[in-house]
Each structure stands twice: as structure tokens, then as C-alpha cells.
Write a protein that binds this DNA or RNA. Structure first.
Lengths: 106, 106
DNA sequence: AAACTTTATCGTAGAATTACGATAAAAATA
DNA sequence: TATTTTTATCGTAATTCTACGATAAAGTTT
């Protein structure tokens, strides 16, 4: 039973953990950082990140699953970009959670 | 080959993804939030989070693996607390990464 | 000492993740 | 039209994750 029991946790906890999952691999962190600077196609990302093209595609799919990025097909290339509203949504859930911690921090 | 190729990514990316992994389950987010408010023993956490005691222990082990929490044995109870320095370290790596995104946000 | 409490660990099982090569589909180029 | 480029998807394999019950170990209580 490796299915996370999401249903027993409220929205806020799931939002934070969704963002966590998206950030839970260095390649995905790198992808997000690259896409923040500029929209990029898969071959651009594959050049910059030393993983197989199919693996990069898989990571993009994972980010898309959490709604963090969108895609636009231009000719034979697929350009990816940050989904700002979803990003902001998850970011604020995380920031709120971190703030609570900051209070405790001396 | 499900081993994440951590070695090919730099420290900053790995720090962010480590924090991501720690936050990648709602139960762990909840645990961190509870421990920020007050140090707690396992039975306290098991009362608050609707998962089996052994599962809670596993999540605590995961958080400990990433250095986010420490433990202190008092009598027959094990109290857990936030490891502030590690927490701050990972938090700042994440915050720095988020800041880059904020610049882009309109 | 016997019974109880607390918690880590073991064993197990199913699901998800990470990784790659191979291949298919679609567009661009020669 | 044939070839090349680009990218998603399939197949596969190893590893990790999530979850629980059972149990062991260590302390507390009766």
C-alpha cells in the first residue's frame, strides 16, 4: 500500500507536499529554474541537464502533473513554460508553512 | 535504476531537492508543523495523525535522514525537535530558489 | 516480579520513482 | 519523397516509498 492517504489530510498540507514532490528531484529544480529565466524546448533542457532525453521528458511530465508547467507546440519543438498561477498558489502555501517555522527561529 | 544521480547536480540543487523530499508527504509537513510549535513524543504525533504508529516512526526516520529533526530520549518516551540549523540551511536554499522565480512573477 | 507503555525495527506487499534504450509520430529539411 | 529532427511514449529493471501488523527492547507501574 504505497498510495499516500491524501484524503485524510487537508488542502494546505497537500499543497505543500505537492510542491515538495515537484521539487524532490534536483533535475526538476534545475528545470524550473531554467524555465523561469526563459521558455525552453526539450532539446534545450536535454543539452543542459546530463540525463537521457526520455528521462527529461518524464520529469517534465511529473512537473506538468502537478500543474507547475504548461507546454506549447511550435513546429516540431515543444516549448515549456511556468504556470504562474499554480506556481504562486503552491509557493504561497509553502511560504505560509515556512513562516510558522520562522517565528520559532531565534 | 531508480537511484537519483545526485552526484551530477550541484549542492544547491541537492539542498532544495532534499527539502522537497522531506516535504513530499502531507504527514511529514504536519509533523514539522507540530514540532515547530512544541517538541513532541511519538505517541503525541500518533494521536494527532491518523496513521499507524509504525508509519509515523518511518516518517520521523525520513525527516531525521535529511537532518531536519533530532531526538531526545526522556524516560520511556522519545521526544523529537526541529534541528534549527539544518532547517535554516535548507530553507535558505529553497528561499533563494523561490526568489529567482519571484523576479519573473509580474 | 509481572504487567503495561512507548517506540524502533522487521517483514511484507503493492505502488511509485528513476533511468535508459528503442521506437513511433509529427514536423522540417534536403 | 527520403531523410533528419524533435519529443512523447513504451518496455524494462532496480530502487524507494507508503502502509500496516507483529514483535522486540527498554522504561514504568503495580
Amino acid at each position: 500500500m504505497a498510495i499516500t492517504k491524501k484524503s485524510i489530510f487537508n488542502q494546505q498540507y497537500n499543497d505543500v507536499s505537492d510542491f515538495g514532490k515537484a521539487l524532490a528531484h534536483p533535475a526538476r529544480v534545475m528545470i524550473l529554474e531554467i524555465l523561469v529565466a526563459e521558455n525552453r524546448c526539450v532539446s534545450d533542457l536535454t543539452e543542459r541537464i546530463p540525463l537521457a532525453q526520455s528521462t527529461i521528458s518524464q520529469h517534465l511530465k511529473e512537473l506538468k502533473k502537478h500543474g507547475l508547467i504548461d507546454t506549447e507546440i511550435v513546429g516540431k519543438q515543444n516549448f515549456y513554460c511556468i504556470n504562474q498561477s499554480r506556481y504562486t498558489e503552491l509557493q504561497s502555501a509553502l511560504t505560509q508553512m515556512l513562516k510558522k517555522v520562522m517565528i520559532q527561529t531565534p
